[in-house]
Design a protein around this nucleic acid. Structure first.
Length: 818
DNA sequence: GAAGTGGATATACC
DNA sequence: ACTGGTATATCCACTTC
């Protein structure tokens, strides 16, 4: 039979001692299908060229006995390959299944016949590389239905899908429209610790518009809301949940923080209640891998924890200060969670339950909508990187960069580099930091008529232009090599283009291509694709210096920064020479005074500079600004770096580094600062800003400020006991623990500073939690929050706000502003 | 016990 | 441990006189 197919979920599967990859996806008509593909896992052995044949016959004779099993290589082939651009002779050694392959590779390593590669790739990654049967693309499949095939002896009956096919051949074909079936879920429980309390309810919302809450609480048929399904107890709740998921059979099951909460919670309760949660299409149960990155997996249904994906793919663009569903939904959907005051279920009154159900349902509704919003991104990440959505949604950017590289090595005939071993990791982590980018020291002041340039994709463009990578790094000077000086040492890179810079170049070109198409004809998929390319390109510089990277090359990272410093400084000089005045620069951007010249002249200068830039390096105009302000550091007269505010012709502000944008400052300080920056940038003087600050200080002193504007939020970055220095937020966290409020590594701790009777110098002794009664500490909020946030802004106008406050008593507004 | 300094810590910028 | 280095600022911990 022959049909079109889009692969979504992959898993290895052994049937009658034969290794298959089970692939679940949909055909052209939207029917869910399960494919089986015979597959022999393999690894590479790079050998001494002359001994290849003899080593081959040696390997063919290997027999490993492991727990009574006889393990032998299935097949050994000799190949001409490349490793880090160098030609090598390599043996490709196949085994019956993945664990056999591991055993044989161990034995081969023991025999010291050469160096082993590729055994550290995941089986699915290797399978996709080998077959080019990539996730989320359409293929034409030929194969036979397995129900008549004795080889599979009844496997198809285990699988709930109507069609199971053994693959004969795969051919790429044109993509078709694909709308996935998906379902969002969310649970409510009595305890926050995994499995400690009962699950009270589960909400389910799917892409067909069904919405429901399953619960065993508050059984009142007369007052039952239409979306609620009652069951007898928690056990029935879990069974019903499994039934509903199986019945709907989604491609994607979506949760929010579900890898850390909902999924393990359900699994743990099911184990306690001794019920099977066989959600998998093959009747398998939920699988949960603990560890640094916990992940919940269901065979044939891709479980996605959206929170994780949003944080890796979007956090750099987000306004939200936390990843909470409420904040993220507000930012991306303009919708919020419902309000509900949490109580233990035993304390919830009969008439409050409906609210709780609605609250629970809304969480799934928001999760579903967020999935729709981010679906193009998940899809394009998967297509660009060539890894399944299950992986790309959980992996960090460094892993995604690495996956991209591994999946594109084929073109270069490269054998993949190994992951660093444990001792190597330790060694790499001890490496001294190399010198980074250049930051210009500004002079504090209010400036007018500013232009800003920045280099497009600075790091990637440097890596590509100068061919920086592990495989192009030369051991010694060669003729026609690029010489780069780092810390009085010279290092060299070949000019023969390496695969890493070449891939990066392709990424940048594709990004440009899609960005252009996007501007012509915008749609969410193109935007997502362009964004995926951009994110991968941007992360590639960090990847080179990341200790966990297969293609780790700190020399390349250090060279990239050395080159970046050289070019930004040269460009600054150039701009100054043309009669402008550079006032600030950070890494890849330059702000300068236009000095009466026209915008056209600035653009001309840009062109001239670009004509001289090598390779794919490019400078672009970021914007023109009518005004900008730079302030001094808190200590001394020196201009502060990474702290400025600009306003453009459309009165749009760009604020960087100021307390306004820092979440660990109270709202009062932040909004006040934001407002005075706005007034100053709009007016070009400090008059209105002064009046405003006067009013705020007056309110503060009269204790008119609401407590919610005085909350300080600080994140707990490790567990409480690990802190060497007990700062205010650690005290607050300790107190929360005493009060049985859940706190853990990563929690955002909220507290305020209160007036206390004790005479103490330490801020931490004045910390109070929000639920603790107390008056705000006037001195603290004035001198440690409000004034620091505004002082150095007024200092630009030679106004000492503090002196003004302390100087005269009982002054009115007129005295204040004069 | 006040003053000064360095370390620990959090967060932002690019 | 899960991309890099540069930078500011706060508060604690400790030393010194």
């Amino acid at each position: 039979m022959k049909f079109k197919f889009i692969p979504i979920d992959y898993s290895p599967r052994e049937i009658n001692e034969k290794e298959y990859i089970q692939i679940i996806g949909r055909d052209g008509t939207g029917k869910k299908i399960c494919l089986f593909h015979e597959y022999l896992p393999f690894f590479w052995l790079i050998v001494n060229e002359k001994k290849a044949n003899s080593i081959k016959s040696q390997i063919e004779k290997i027999v490993v006995i492991e727990s009574g099993q006889k393990i032998i290589p299935e097949k050994v082939e000799i190949h001409e390959k490349k490793f880090l651009e160098k030609k090598v002779k390599a043996l490709k050694i196949y085994a019956l299944n993945y664990s056999f392959m591991q055993e044989i590779s161990k034995k081969v390593q023991l025999l010291k016949l050469g160096k082993v590669y590729g055994n550290d790739l995941g089986e699915i990654t290797q399978y996709i590389c080998e077959t080019n049967f990539s996730p989320m693309n359409f293929y034409e499949i030929t194969g036979e239905a397995i129900n008549e095939n004795p080889e599979f002896s009844g496997i198809d009956k285990e699988i709930e899908l109507s069609l199971c096919v053994k693959i004969d051949s795969i051919k790429k074909c044109d993509d078709e429209n694909f709308s996935p079936k998906f379902m969002a879920y969310d649970i409510e429980t009595d305890e926050i610790q995994i499995g400690e309390g009962e699950i009270l309810m589960i909400s389910l919302v799917d892409s067909k518009g069904n919405k429901k809450v399953i619960t065993w609480k508050s059984q009142n048929e007369n007052k039952k809301p239409s979306f609620v399904d009652y069951v007898a107890d928690e056990k029935e709740l879990l069974k019903k949940f499994a039934d509903e998921v199986r019945k709907f059979s989604p491609d994607f099951l979506i949760g929010y923080f579900s890898d850390r909460f909902d999924f393990p919670y359900i699994k743990s309760r099911a184990e306690k209640l001794k019920i099977k949660m066989n959600l998998g299409v093959d009747d398998s149960s939920m699988k949960f891998s603990r560890g640094q990155n916990p992940a919940g997996r269901i065979n044939g249904v891709v479980h996605v924890d959206l929170a994780k994906f949003i944080s890796t793919a979007y956090s750099q663009y987000m306004q939200s200060e936390t990843l909470s569903l409420n904040e993220i939904a507000k930012e991306f959907l303009g919708e919020e969670k419902l309000k509900f005051e949490f109580k233990h279920s035993s304390k919830i009154a009969e008439d409050e339950w409906e609210k709780y159900f609605e609250y629970n349902l809304q969480d799934s509704v928001l999760t579903l909508k967020l999935f729709e919003k981010f679906w193009p991104d998940l899809l394009e990440f998967s297509r660009v990187i060539n890894e399944p959505i299950f992986e790309i949604s959980r992996n960090g950017m460094s892993k995604n960069v690495e996956s991209y590289v591994i999946h594109h090595l084929k073109k270069y005939d490269e054998i993949p580099e190994r992951k660093p071993e444990h001792h190597e990791l330790a060694q790499r982590m001890e490496r001294e930091k190399y010198e980074g980018a250049f930051v210009f020291e500004p002079t504090a002041g209010l400036y007018e008529d500013i232009a800003m340039f920045d280099f497009t994709s600075y790091w990637p463009s440097i890596i590509v232009t100068f061919n920086l990578s592990k495989s192009t790094l030369l051991e010694k000077k060669e003729k026609d090599a690029t010489e780069i000086e780092i810390k009085d040492k010279k290092i060299y890179f070949s000019k023969k283009i390496g695969f890493f810079p070449d891939m990066l170049k392709e990424l940048i070109e594709k990004r440009k291509e899609y960005k252009k198409e996007l501007q012509k004809n915008p749609d969410a998929v193109k935007r997502a694709r362009s964004n995926a390319f951009k994110l991968l390109a941007n992360a590639s510089y960090g990847y080179l210096g990341f200790f966990g990277a297969r293609y780790y090359c700190p020399e390349a990272s250090a060279s990239a920064t050395a080159i970046s410093r050289k070019f930004i400084k040269k460009t600054i000089e150039r701009i100054n020479k043309e009669g402008y005045k550079v006032i600030y620069s950070d890494t890849d951007s330059i702000a300068f005074l236009k000095n009466e010249k026209t915008q056209e002249e600035v653009k001309e200068l840009l062109k001239k500079i670009n004509n001289k830039l090598p390779g794919i390096m490019e400078l672009e105009l970021e914007d023109f600004y009518t005004r900008g302000i730079w302030v001094t550091k808190r200590t001394g007269e020196i201009g502060a770096k990474k702290k400025y505010a600009l306003i453009n012709g459309k009165n749009k502000m760009k604020i960087r580094g100021f307390e306004t944008v820092r979440r660990d400052w109270c709202k009062l300080a932040r909004t006040t600062q934001n407002h005075i920056l706005k007034l100053i940038l709009e007016d070009g003087n400090e008059k209105r800003a002064l009046v405003y600050v006067y009013e705020i200080i007056k309110n503060l002193k009269e204790r008119k400020i609401e407590k919610k504007d005085l909350i300080i939020r600080t994140q707990l970055k490790k567990s409480i006991s690990e802190y060497k220095s007990i700062s205010p937020h650690v005290i607050a966290a300790k107190r929360m623990k005493e009060l049985n409020i859940p706190v853990s590594n990563g929690s955002l701790i909220e507290y305020y500073i209160a007036e206390t009777s004790e005479k103490t110098k330490l801020v931490r002794d004045k910390v109070k939690l929000l639920e603790e009664k107390g008056e705000y500490n006037l001195d603290y909020y004035l001198n440690q929050q409000l004034l620091p946030a505004v002082e150095n802004i007024f200092q630009v106008f030679n106004i000492d706000v503090k002196e003004k406050i302390e100087g005269k008593k009982q002054k009115g507004l007129n005295e204040w502003i004069n």
